Simulated scan of single mutants.
Amino acid sequence: MTETTLSPSDHLDALPDAARRVAQLLRERGHAKPVVMLPETGKTSAEAAAGLGCDVAQIAKSILFRRRDDDAPVLVIASGANRVDERKVAAQVGEIGRADAKFVREKTGYAIGGVCPIGHATTPVTLIDADLFALDSLWAAAGHPHAVFNLTPQELAALTGAPVVDVALRDA
């Protein structure tokens, strides 16, 4: 791996603003692992996995939808190896639609490619992909397309308080 790791004792000033907010929030919540800056973008699961030297399935990607009834943000944290079945999500939270970049930034405070599972401007309805729980270690975006942090599926559930459900699109 060629990323830069910033330990809690390092100056957070080296992180971009959004990643610094995430690092501080993680620290406040007792998460001891540092935010890692990738030299190349981690906007896609494949890019992040390549930069980290891990399996694509270990990337906990954050996908934001817009609930049609009330315009609420719906965050699905899915395995990087999975496509999200929007029908399964809708069965859990109500009818959903796609969220554009403006909606994502407004509701989360993060740009697409850096949406963190926590610390959103508007608290989203959140679902966690059950397939993540077959893994020991995950990587999630930390507020910036180059920033990630490591955690377990159990830590993800504890940090978000979200239910764990089947959201993966399965071949028929």
Rank of each mutant, 00 (worst) to 15 (best):
V148I: 11
G109N: 10
F65I: 02
Q58G: 04
K61A: 12
C116A: 08
R68S: 13
A72R: 13
A101H: 03
S62D: 01
V115W: 04
V84A: 02
L138K: 07
P163R: 15
A81D: 00
A81C: 12
G80D: 11
D70G: 13
I96G: 02
Q58L: 07
T122L: 11
G114Q: 03
P145R: 06
T122N: 07
D136H: 14
A60F: 00
D70C: 10
N82K: 02
A141V: 00
L132V: 06
F133Q: 02
D129A: 12
I77D: 06
P163H: 00
V89L: 07
R105N: 06
L64V: 15
N82A: 09
K88C: 02
F65E: 01
V104S: 09
T122C: 12
A101E: 14
V74N: 11
G119H: 10
S79N: 10
V104R: 08
G80I: 04
I96Q: 07
K88H: 12
A121Y: 02
V164R: 02
L132F: 12
E155L: 10
F149D: 02
F149T: 04
R68Y: 11
K107A: 01
I77F: 00
A142P: 05
G143R: 05
K88G: 00
A81I: 13
I59S: 00
H144W: 12
A121D: 14
A140Y: 07
L75E: 08
L75Q: 11
W139Y: 15
S137R: 15
L138I: 14
L135A: 13
L151C: 15
G114A: 05
L132D: 08
L159H: 04
A157K: 01
P124Q: 06
D136E: 15
Q92G: 12
L127C: 10
V56W: 03
T152S: 15
F133N: 11
I96H: 07
G113F: 00
P163D: 14
F103G: 06
V104N: 07
P145F: 08
L138G: 09
I112P: 02
D55K: 09
D136Y: 12
G143W: 11
T108V: 10
C116K: 04
I63S: 05
K102I: 14
K107H: 09
V76S: 02
A57V: 11
R105K: 13
A101V: 04
L132Q: 04
D69S: 13
I128R: 08
R87P: 05
I128P: 01
G114V: 04
P124M: 08
H144G: 02
A111E: 09
I59H: 03
S79I: 14
R98C: 05
E86F: 05
P145H: 08
I112D: 06
V74E: 07
E86D: 00
V84W: 09
D136K: 15
W139R: 00
V125K: 08
T126K: 05
E106P: 10
D71L: 13
D55E: 13
E86T: 01
C116M: 01
A140S: 09
A134Q: 15
A130S: 13
A99M: 10
D100C: 10
V56Y: 02
A99V: 11
P73A: 14
L159K: 03
P153Y: 07
T126Y: 13
D69L: 04
I96M: 02
V115Q: 00
D55L: 01
A142N: 12
H144Y: 14
A141N: 03
V104Y: 08
E86A: 11
E95L: 15
A147T: 14
I77E: 10
A130N: 04
T123K: 04
A147H: 06
